[in-house]
Simulated assay, not measured.
Amino acid sequence: MSITSAAGTGWLDPSLSAIMSERRQLINLAYRLLGSLADAEDVVQETYTRWYAMSRQQQEAIESPGAWLTRVASRICLDQLDSARVRRERYVGEWLPEPLPDHREWTSGGVPADPADRVTLDESVSIAFLVVLDSMTPAERVAFVLHDVFRYPFAEVAEIVGRTPVACRQLASSARRRIDASRAPAAPASQQAGIVRDFKQAWEAKDINALIGLLDPDATGIADVGGLVSALLHPIEGSEQIARYFLDIAVRASGMTMTERMVNGQPGLVLQLGEATTAVLGFDIAGDRIKRIWAVRNPDKLRPWTAG
């Protein structure tokens, strides 16, 4: 993104570097709030548009431009979260957040190479975490992310959300309870990677017994297709049903390749047919069993995984 002067004035902005240095923070915030990199980029673009729509005098009167940008971006996200619930009612099948590769794997054809557009990958962007965030009310989500993830004081959160600091504290507390209730004892990263590798090998070998053995008996499989590709529109429940479904894919998808990749900071799999990425799989692993598999197949959400 390149902006060298305030809109309609022609004067060079001496604080441009300081203003634009906030971009990565805003991208990180908006992605966690919306679960979509494309939407996050739109929010940041709109935030800067509003900044440069102000006069020079108006900008200079703002004591902390970074705080102003955060407030505006957060409010735009809050509005989008309110309208997203209406859009989700029209969404075909299950909705999952847009998966992100490790920043070292982002490609020129997908996510821009500018480091300011990269999302910092930690627990707060894992698929499991974002799925729980999506179950919250917009106010809960914004209050929790701003306070617990980005460490904004409740007085500032209250100004953004339009509630009292006490109410925002309660919103964040409610959200925190949801997060804690969803957490299973996390397996070490190396163990998670090993289980994903075993799943990949069992899938490639079409070994249904090995697949079942890697899945928790009450495991759930969820696919996000958005009505753009064929797949089951409802979750699959149970280890045997999931194993049979994946085995059927292996039989039908001749030429499919699977690659172990990091998905939102966690070990996952990327499926390709030729040069096209057809699915990104995220895993929720507790102990030595897979509890959940999230398969994003909506091509609109696979942009960061598209080569070239």
Rank of each mutant, 00 (worst) to 15 (best):
K291Y: 08
D42A: 08
G308I: 05
R292N: 10
L37Q: 12
L271R: 05
D224L: 12
V132S: 03
V166R: 14
P235V: 02
A61R: 15
I293D: 00
R75S: 07
I212T: 09
F150I: 09
L121C: 13
M20C: 01
L130C: 11
P99S: 13
G268T: 10
A186M: 08
G274K: 10
F246V: 13
G93P: 13
R197G: 03
G221W: 09
F283L: 09
G162Y: 04
S135L: 03
V251D: 10
I160Q: 11
E140C: 08
A186E: 14
R261L: 13
T259M: 10
V296G: 14
P299E: 14
S74A: 15
G238L: 11
S124M: 04
V125S: 05
A73V: 11
Q80T: 04
T278L: 10
A202G: 01
E156C: 09
Q170V: 08
A184D: 11
T306L: 03
K301L: 09
S17H: 05
R151H: 15
A276P: 01
A53L: 15
S126P: 14
R88H: 05
P99A: 06
Q80I: 12
K291V: 07
R88D: 01
G213R: 13
V251H: 12
M258E: 07
Y91N: 00
T257V: 15
W294A: 03
Y48G: 00
V119S: 05
Y152G: 00
R176A: 13
